[in-house]
Nucleic acid binder design. Structure first.
Length: 257
DNA sequence: ATGTCTACCACAGGTAGA
């Protein structure tokens, strides 16, 4: 079973790229982030025609997450994180697919730091940690997948010293990520590639892709039953090279039987 | 500070967010 995460940066503007990648890569489950579309503008028909059932949580202009499943409909188990009922941003969606529980998330960017956006990022992270605590011990495989907007270590940044004051690399954010992993989650990509400089995002600015000036901010975290089945974790870098592509590449894991 | 995308509103290009 292949489970992917892909920040599409606009699901409608990116639809040709998304459909081409689905056809070529044939993932079984896909967590999408940054739909940038309200619920009624989610391209359900095109995605169904591509062979995928979907659940989605949209929002006008910003954010928005979805979970796709090849050949079946994901069974939604949660929309939004507990803990801040006044929070209207669409950033978390959870669904069961063929016995695997998948949490798709888009953690706040948090820039500029300091400021209210950074404070929101830290609060959102604490809510994620609290909810993840209820998932980690499940008997079923659980995968938390998405754009975490965190580079966990210096190995995950092309030039760490340039990023120390940024909300994506701030010590308190890295500490929160480490605390989340400390519950027992396996960072799949880093576990399968322990020493490799491996990126999932390249800014549109300054020829970042051409220079491989990238960041590793899209992660798939496995609880123990999922980690036991982990076979492969890869980045579909070739997608970042396509015309009209997202600034993120898809990332995926393969779980064995 | 800059760079480049996307979506919005509304019809053009400025603004916001990343």
């Amino acid at each position: 079973m292949r489970i992917a995460t892909y920040n599409v940066n606009g699901v409608n503007g990116r639809l040709p790229v998304l459909l081409r990648w689905l056809a070529e890569s044939q993932p079984d489950v896909v967590c999408l982030q940054e739909l940038k579309a309200p619920d009624e503008k989610f391209p359900e028909a095109a995605i169904r025609d591509a062979g995928y059932g979907a659940v989605w949580h949209g929002q006008k202009s910003w954010n928005g997450v979805a979970i796709l499943a090849r050949g079946c409909d994901p069974v939604e188990t949660r929309r939004g994180l507990p803990g801040e009922p006044e929070d209207v941003q669409s950033r978390y969606l959870e669904a069961a697919v063929n016995g695997v529980l998948v949490g798709g998330l888009y953690l706040p960017n948090g820039n500029p730091k300091p400021g209210p956006k950074f404070d929101y990022k830290l609060r959102w992270f604490e809510r994620l940690i609290a909810h993840a605590e209820t998932l980690i011990g499940m008997d079923a495989p659980v995968v938390l997948a998405g754009d975490f907007n965190v580079m966990p270590t210096e190995l995950d940044v092309y030039k760490p010293e340039r990023w120390v004051d940024d909300a994506l690399f701030a010590p308190e954010v890295r500490e929160a990520y480490a605390r989340l992993l400390g519950q027992g989650w396996t960072d799949a990509l880093r576990t399968m590639h322990p020493d490799e400089r491996i990126y999932t995002f390249w800014d549109y600015f300054r020829n970042a892709w051409g220079r491989n000036a990238g960041l590793r901010i899209d992660h798939l975290l496995c609880n123990a039953p999922a980690a036991k089945r982990l076979k492969t974790a890869e980045v579909d870098r070739f997608v970042r090279d396509w015309e009209k592509t997202s600034d993120h590449a898809p990332v995926w894991i393969e779980l064995g039987a």
